[in-house]
Design a protein around this nucleic acid. Structure first.
Lengths: 210, 210
DNA sequence: TAGATTGTTAATCGATTAACAATC
DNA sequence: TAGATTGTTAATCGATTAACAATC
C-alpha cells in the first residue's frame, strides 16, 4: 500500500467485486489478466480498473498485466480478509439463522461465536453449531470473547438499543439488517443492509422498463 | 411527474430512504417539514433534498415546506409502491425463508406466491402460508400466475440457470441473493444483494478506524 | 529491440452544493 | 405585506474516462 490519501467509498465498494471475479479466474486456472481483458469480464472500464488499483499500489507489470493470484491476495489484504473476525448475532429469527448459516458456509475469517435472543423458547437451541443464548448475557459475552462484529437481526424497535449495547461492550463493527438507520459512535464501523430499500429500487426499475 | 429526463441511480437509491423517514414523521403526527428540517433529520443537504424531489415535480410549497403525507404518497407512487407485485422464491433454505417471512411481515404490495425447491424433503412444507413446491413446476407457475418478480435464494451454481428460467417464464424483475453477478435480458430489471460484499466493506472500514 | 500494457496526468463528465429569484 | 422556503440556475467538487509517457 502506498500513500495515505483518502480512498473514496465508490472504490471500496468495487473491491469485493474485483475479488470475486479474480477468484473465478483462479478457479479456471488463469494466471494473468490485463486491465483490458478484466474490463470486458467485469464491466468496468480498463482505465477505472487501473485507477482503482493504483490507489493502493502498483500491482501490475507493464507489458504483462496483473498476476491473478497476487492481485487476489492484495485485494484480500486491503479489505482485511487476512484477519479473523469474531461475531455475534442478535436475533435468532429466520434472518439471523440465514446469516449464521451463510457466514459459516462461506467460511473464511468470519466466525459466528454466539446468537442472542429474548424469546426463551429459542434459547439453548443450536444453529449450525452455534448456541442460541439469553440476550441478557450478550454484553458480558462480547467483552469476554473479544467480539469484533455485532450483527443486528432483530426487529426495528429494539435494533438501536441492541446496537448501543454492542458498542458499549466493545464491538468494532455493526452489520445492521433492521430496517432503520442506526447511530453508532465514531470509532465503530457501520454497514447497513436495507433489504426493503433494495426491493423498492427494484420496483422502480421494473416500472421504467415498459 | 414532470419531464422525461433520465433520473440518476444515485437519486433512485435515496428515494426509499426519504420514504422511510417520512413514514416515521407520519407516525409522530408531524404534518409538514421544510427541506432544512428534513436535512438535519436524514443527513442529506437541504439543497440535495430539493434537487432530488424536483426531478419528479414540485411537491413543496414556497414559504411553507413539504406536506409529509403528500410527499410520502408521491414518493411511494414514484417507486411504484402503489402497485401489487406477485413474487416467487427459488430456494427454501434459511435465506429463502427469511425473505418469505420478511416480505410477508412488512406486507405492502409484495406477495410471495410460491417457493420452489429441488430438495424433495422440503416440498409440501408451508412457510408462512406459502407452499414449497417442486422446482420442476416453477416455469409453468410463473406463466399461469403472472408472476412479476423472481427471488433467487439458491446457491451460486444454479443461480444463473434459475434466473434464465424465470426470465423465460416472464418475470419483469429479479432480486438476486446468490453471490455472483447474474445476466438478464434488457427488459428485465435486476437488483442484486451481495451480502458478502457488504461484509467485506465492513471489514475494510473496521481496519481504517484504528 | 519492439510490442504490450501499466501507472499517472489531464480532460471530461456527472453529481452535489450554493445562491437567489420566484412565490406562497 | 413581510417572511419563509421552495424551485431552479450557476458554481463547485469529485469521480470517471482518455491519453500517453514510462517501463517491463
Amino acid at each position: 500500500m502506498k500513500k495515505e490519501t483518502r480512498i473514496s467509498n465508490a472504490v471500496i465498494r468495487r473491491l469485493p467485486r474485483y475479488r470475486r471475479y479474480l477468484r473465478e479466474l483462479q478457479k479456471k486456472g488463469i494466471k494473468k489478466i490485463s486491465s483490458n481483458e478484466f474490463s470486458i469480464l467485469i464491466g468496468y472500464t480498463a482505465s477505472q480498473i487501473r485507477q482503482d488499483l493504483n490507489n493502493f499500489g502498483g500491482f501490475g507489470q507493464q507489458g504483462y498485466g496483473y498476476n491473478v493470484d497476487d492481485l487476489y491476495n492484495e485485494i484480500s489484504a486491503i479489505l482485511g480478509l487476512d484477519k479473523k473476525y469474531r461475531m455475534v448475532i442478535a436475533g435468532a429469527g429466520n434472518l439471523g439463522r440465514a446469516i449464521a448459516n451463510y457466514t459459516s458456509y462461506y467460511k473464511s475469517g468470519f466466525l459466528v461465536e454466539g446468537i442472542f435472543e429474548t424469546n426463551t423458547e429459542l434459547i439453548g437451541e443450536k444453529i449450525h453449531d452455534v448456541e442460541v443464548m439469553d440476550y441478557e448475557g450478550m454484553v458480558e459475552f462480547i467483552e469476554k470473547k473479544h467480539i469484533d462484529i455485532g450483527i443486528i437481526c432483530t426487529g426495528k424497535n429494539s435494533a438501536q438499543e441492541v446496537a448501543d449495547k454492542m458498542c458499549f461492550a466493545g464491538v468494532r463493527g455493526i452489520w445492521n439488517f433492521a430496517p432503520l438507520d442506526l447511530e453508532v459512535p465514531g470509532h465503530v464501523a457501520l454497514e447497513q443492509v436495507h433489504l426493503s430499500d433494495s426491493l423498492h429500487a427494484l420496483a422502480y426499475h421494473m416500472n421504467k422498463k415498459e
